[in-house]
Design a protein around this nucleic acid. Structure first.
Lengths: 249, 249
DNA sequence: TTGCAATAATTGTATATACCAGCATAGACT
DNA sequence: AGTCTATGCTGGTATATACAATTATTGCAA
């Protein structure tokens, strides 16, 4: 029953991949669960086993599945490669460690970029940007100040939204695979203003993380000032030979 | 000319992948270069085109190659996913920014783990470990103190080597694809001892990065204390949907 | 010279088939 | 009861084939 090689809009192997990915993200498939065997999927999609094999293999290379010969294919524990870079990693870490996370918006406005802000974003002074500043609390105690500057070239309508729940997934779905990021990490004294907000002495060392992200044509700048007690843990997962050889001995 | 399905020790597709990877790492193939077409490789390896296709596709998923329909396959600009985690990122950054990097070994000894060291490595107190401490200089000025603790279960012979040039690539070659890493970032005052070494006031804020790596059965712990002036930049590249959706809006 | 059509080369996708290798279990044998 | 073996499921690898889609080039016609 040789099927004519007419290609639909979306390749069959892509459909199979999406089917599995959707199952995971919807919660039907949890990490550790076994997914249907290649033969079952092939029947279900009227595809040949090789097509299924290709789809599943790619998901394995991507780290989403683990395959065991003789046993089956299982949903992998999916850890983002570098959770440090998540939006709400601080909030998540706080929550994961059993503390209660809350936040107080300090600033949320749009307006022309000042000289300093423009410098951070590498845009002309006066460009209309979104400026946000949030104080994060752990069990009611101030722990981090987060400042965010956004040049919303791509979707100005997001300017009016409550930013706190907005993530890239809202407007990007598996479209962009790569994102350039530049980070700068250093330690600074809290200083009078932030020291007061964080309820610490102004000479207290704080961690400052400046992150610039290029996503398509947009530039996003983050500044996080983290209270020393707010040191956070995160686990990362490296993938691929390029990292293996970079792992320190 | 159907080849019998006798499998050699190393799968053919693996051999083809290695051939390309070797070409890149030896410099024969530079980023941007076109690699031989699937048909050529198939002839060269006496393989079917599908086998070549599989090998090359996997390298594409892994981010090492870019394929363009109708044109060919090209070596990708390969950027490590998270250069922050490289051993010598500080040294590299210093060099890249046109400064001269040098280092002074402060400590290099093996012996039983103290309580604190054992705690960091999660091994019993008294376990024989390797302890290293190095002061990094930029243009002759102290900029970072690096401490490294290694539990060398895997290859005790490395204990006697000069650690500075030793990387994981010396004993691992494309064997381990995944490595778990835990990081802890915080900011601390330099303190009297390190303040003196770094030639700064003891209350000066410093960045401290603690990194634990699990590589096979081994545990490696890093502690980096970075001078505030030694704030470093790095660019990262994210790959895969898991990160796309995590990229902050 | 410009514009368009045909062509060759390349990757993209899919099928059907074959056999190998790892794992668990049912059943026979001791 | 314990042990071995056969069987069937699973993924792992490889081949041969076919046609689609994209790209650059070539050559012809206006």
């Amino acid at each position: 029953m040789k099927r004519p090689a007419k290609l639909s809009q979306v390749p069959l192997s892509r459909q199979i991949k999406d089917f599995i990915i959707d199952g995971v993200s919807s919660g039907e498939l949890a990490p550790g669960d076994r997914i249907p065997s290649e033969a079952e999927l092939a029947k279900q999609f009227s595809a040949s086993r090789m097509t299924v094999n290709r789809a599943v293999s790619e998901l394995t290379v991507e780290g989403r599945l683990n395959r065991v010969q003789g046993l089956g294919t299982f949903v992998a524990e999916f850890k983002p490669l570098a959770p440090l870079f998540e939006v709400r990693s601080i909030a998540k870490e706080i929550a994961d460690q059993g503390h209660e996370h809350s936040s107080i918006p300090l600033k949320s406005e749009r307006g022309p970029a000042t000289k300093q802000e423009a410098g951070r974003l590498e845009v002309p002074v006066g460009t209309e940007i979104l400026k946000l500043q949030v104080l994060h609390l752990s069990d009611g105690k101030p722990i981090q100040i987060e400042a965010r500057l956004v040049v919303p070239k791509f979707a100005p309508e997001f300017l009016d939204q409550d930013y706190s729940e907005t993530t890239a997934s809202d407007y990007l779905q598996r479209t962009v695979q790569f994102t350039e990021v530049e980070h700068k990490l250093d330690a600074v004294a809290a200083g009078p203003e932030f020291g007061r907000l964080l309820e610490i002495d102004e000479i207290t060392p704080c961690l400052r993380l400046v992150r610039r992200t290029w996503l398509r044509d947009d530039i996003i700048t983050y500044v996080q000032l983290i209270h020393p007690g707010g040191a956070f843990r995160f686990t990362g997962r490296f993938k691929g030979p390029g990292n293996v050889t970079d792992v320190p001995f």
